[in-house]
Design a protein around this nucleic acid. Structure first.
Lengths: 199, 199
DNA sequence: GCACAACACTGAACGATGTTCAATATAATT
DNA sequence: AATTATATTGAACATCGTTCAGTGTTGTGC
């Protein structure tokens, strides 16, 4: 064997990420393995390690793409809305809808742990930060006169809260709690918090 | 080798669970392996499989004990308080404090996934349900006249929200968001939600 | 005190995992 | 055509969860 330049490094990288996403979407993150992934793109394990540092690195790239997609989806959902309250509620709803549509991908974003003491790279942290920033921006019109500290905290509280609902919903623990509609629950959390926050 | 009745099955079970808890607390759940665990209690792998169905089963037992400890801790924290608002805020605070004190154990409760389509046993679901129930009970005095449906939903929203903070805090993503105090954030989430909910 | 049955326990074996790297086959260059 | 450079391989290693035929220990009945 040993073909040469059938695909550039970039092409292989893209093929691998797409194959990984397909595997994860269809069978969950536990089904992802180096050999399976390699054979899915018609290469062998060794080649994967030319393109990615290791599987942790590959998963980080997959998660980055998931975060990008959610971010894009949220901006899209925001576009047609004007009312500040509607806009911020929409952030929560589109988050939940996204996680519901891609549960395995979303699980992976929060299940995946780097080896201890090894921090995610800055570019990845920025993608996470961007989510909180989105909420902060939408919160501003509703928090007239509040300091930026208060807005940061409120955004973190809202985002964390919606995130918690998300996690529990994916792992089916909200059924146990007697919740019938996850979207209603999200609405309850956000609107009541905002009522309290805005005053 | 092949000792007989040095320890009863129950004793071995207890030893294994304690050793597992020690390993998890000190090195995180990734450090847990059947061989390591077996040698920690002076037995071999085979013996573990006499006492537990498999590692998933063992982890479920560990998680059950973690849930029990948190539940007990919450009841303890509640005991000296009378004011309904104080009591419910305390639930959130003691939850966060517990997760902060035992991050690896708490991570495991939410990272661990059974094989797809395999549900956790009823006794385990009950332990989860009990947490929500605790919040519902404390919510009742604050929700005079509200239907049990509304209380259930509010409890789920509060618990999910605090849980979300918990998860993000453990995975260090709240630092990224510019949050300085997790306990303050929890207080913000709960008190603002309650302000909105109670009216 | 002895044989035997019942049981506790072992550890080699299996297939899978992530990761490495000497060997090899192909392309580019001379 | 010969040589160099490099893209790709796949066998090898340590480790994983899990199984189960075999071995050693104990309690029972004679």
């Amino acid at each position: 064997m040993a073909r040469r330049s059938d695909h550039s490094r970039e092409e292989i990288r893209e093929m691998a990420l797409e194959a990984a996403e397909k595997l994860i979407a269809e069978e969950g993150s536990k089904a992802l393995s180096a050999r399976k992934l390699a054979s899915a793109i018609g290469y062998t394990v060794g080649t994967l390690y030319l393109v990615f540092e290791n599987l942790d690195d590959l998963i980080l790239q997959v998660n980055a793409r998931t975060l990008d997609r959610l971010h894009a989806r949220m901006l899209e959902a925001l576009a047609p809305l004007d009312d500040p309250t509607e806009r911020i509620l929409m952030l929560g709803h589109s988050y939940i809808a996204f996680a519901d549509a891609h549960p395995h991908h979303w699980e992976l974003v929060f299940e995946h742990r780097l080896p201890p003491e090894k921090e995610p790279p800055q570019w990845y942290k920025d993608k996470v930060r961007r989510m909180f920033a989105l909420v902060e921006t939408e919160l501003e019109p509703l928090a007239a006169g509040r300091g930026s500290k208060a807005i940061t905290q409120a955004a973190a509280a809202l985002w964390s809260g919606v995130h918690g609902i998300c996690i529990l919903a994916i792992s089916k623990q909200l059924d146990v709690a007697g919740v019938d509609s996850v979207q209603d629950l999200t609405h309850s959390l956000m609107s009541n918090y905002l009522k309290g926050f805005v005053g």
